[in-house]
Structure formats: structure tokens, C-alpha cells
Design a protein around this nucleic acid. Structure first.
Lengths: 85, 85
DNA sequence: TTTTTATTTCGAAAAACATCGAAATAACTC
DNA sequence: GAGTTATTTCGATGTTTTTCGAAATAAAAA
């Protein structure tokens, strides 16, 4: 099971997070932004989800992904603690 | 070539960085903190170095590793931008 | 100059990861 | 119920990563 650091070590997943910062997106909308198959994007979404970085809600057939910022606080604290000059 | 995110995705490497936050350490001192071979720790140090997260200076036979915080600014900005509620 | 100390590089093995196409699920529409 | 749409799961493949032991390098000490 990957932690938040592992989840954000992948560029595609960071781009997904950036995308979600604007507003929630459906899996399909996220797919459209990348030159990857739906299977691959779904896998990335799963990784983000299990790391607690995103939340999902179902709306009929579509699944909506949104940001779950609290989990990033841990990373933020680490970096602030360590990067503080 | 791994970026800073990739470098910090590994727990051992984050612990090394935490260690260096206190003060610079020699490779040997860092080794002593982990239940890993010198070869493995040296590899991790190499990854941190190529990501620009640490600096080295030689002092006779020993090599001293120290923190290079500026490189963490990029990550910090990303997280602040994205985790800001 | 041989030996010792500190560290890295090499080569290999095992585990983890990203990616895909195809099949499966879930919910809607006809 | 049969077909359609949105998304995930499965199984496989190639790549990257972590780790090690052994050999190599670098500088000092004997």
C-alpha cells in the first residue's frame, strides 16, 4: 500500500491532483486530459484514492473525483520542517 | 534521472533528510542509523544527490553530506498551491 | 609501499510499478 | 430484458527500484 509520497512521486498523478484543484472531475474527464488508456488512468486514480488524496462520489454511471487536501498536511509539515533555512 | 519527488518517495531517504536537518553527517554516520548495507545507503545518498537535495564535501577519506534545501521549494510550492483549502 | 579506513561502483536478484487490451461491473435507456 | 455508457478489474509485459555481496577507488597511516 502506497503512502501519499509514493502517490505523488508520479508525474501523471500530480497532474491529476492539479486538475482537481480547479474543480471536481469525473473519471472520464480526467481521462481526456491524458494520452493514456482508461485502464491506466483508473489505476492512477485508485492509487491517489488509497493514499487518501482524493475522494469519490457516484453520480449515476459516472464517478466524480475531488481533492482531499488534509492528507497533504503531513507532507507539507515535513517539507516545512526540513526545508526551513 | 529521478526528480525530487521520486527521491522523497522512499522512506529511508526521507529519514536521511531528517537526519541531515540536524547537522551534516558523514556517509558512515548515516549508515549507522539504518539496518542496511553501506552499498544500499550509498545508493540512497546518490539518489538524493542527483535530485539536488543534498550536497557533499570531502574531508580526507570521509565524505560529508549536508542538506540543500532550495530544491525543496518546488515541492513546497506545489503542495501549498494544491493543499490550500 | 603495504595496509587500513571510508566510501562508491558493479552486477545480479527480487519486488514494485506503469501500462495496455480485454473482460467485468454498474447504472441508465429503449 | 437487450443494448449503451462510464468506469474498474484482470492478466500480462516491460521497466524501474531496492537491496545485497563483492570488487574497486581514494586517502591516510604504518
Amino acid at each position: 500500500m502506497r503512502d501519499a509520497w509514493g502517490a505523488l512521486s508520479d508525474k501523471t498523478r500530480r497532474e491529476i491532483i492539479t486538475l482537481l484543484k480547479g474543480r471536481p472531475h469525473t473519471a472520464g474527464e480526467i481521462c481526456d486530459q491524458f494520452d493514456l488508456t482508461a485502464a491506466t488512468v483508473s489505476h492512477h486514480l485508485h492509487v491517489l484514492k488509497e493514499a487518501g488524496l482524493v475522494l469519490t462520489t457516484r453520480r449515476a454511471q459516472t464517478i466524480i473525483y475531488s481533492l482531499n487536501s488534509p492528507v497533504m498536511q503531513g507532507m507539507l509539515s515535513y517539507l516545512l520542517g526540513v526545508a526551513r533555512k
